[in-house]
């Protein structure tokens, strides 16, 4: 019973991903199609990509991408086509530009700030720790308050 429950919980959700039977001329085209539909957002169910979504619009957009891939268009051309219609929001990986600087810049910046504080914390202590530093241990402080 427990095991069955765990199995159900662990059952991979992607098995329900939408399936279309599509024929490609070359494996590269198929790879490009897969890559694109993974990276493009379904506008209807906004937290799914085109590959996973079963919405009608997602299906239409998948077919659009499929036909563009088949006609030999590059990934960039296809993305440009969709961005011209739906805006940068269709891209799960937004381009680096003026209004996305904060989005792209903040994580590395925060990492650097974190590393700086870590470095300061580590270097502010003497390399050899003195075992009997009074009142620097919070536990000592707590004990002091007891009667």
């Amino acid at each position: 019973m427990k095991r069955a429950l765990i199995l159900i919980l662990l059952w991979p959700g992607w098995l329900w991903a939408a399936i279309d039977v599509l024929q490609f001329d070359t494996p590269e085209q198929e790879a490009r199609f897969q890559q694109l539909t993974q990276e493009l957002r379904c506008l209807v169910c906004q937290n799914q990509n085109l590959a996973d979504s079963d919405a009608d619009l997602a299906r239409d957009l998948r077919m659009e991408v499929y036909e563009m891939v088949k006609s030999g268009q590059s990934a960039d051309e296809i993305k440009t086509f969709l961005v011209a219609r739906y805006g940068d929001f269709v891209l799960y990986r937004p381009p680096v530009q003026r209004n996305t600087l904060l989005l792209w810049g903040l994580p590395p910046l925060l990492l650097l700030i974190g590393l700086f504080f870590l470095w300061r914390f580590l270097t502010s202590r003497p390399a050899t720790t003195e075992p009997e530093a009074p009142a620097s241990d919070p536990l000592d402080l707590l004990q002091d308050e007891e009667p």
Binding site: L57, R85, Y86, G87
Partner: peptide
């Protein structure tokens, strides 16, 4: 076919 609607960037 929903083509023109895509050209108009309609999502709902």
């Amino acid at each position: 076919a929903g083509r023109t609607v895509i050209d108009f960037g309609v999502y709902g």
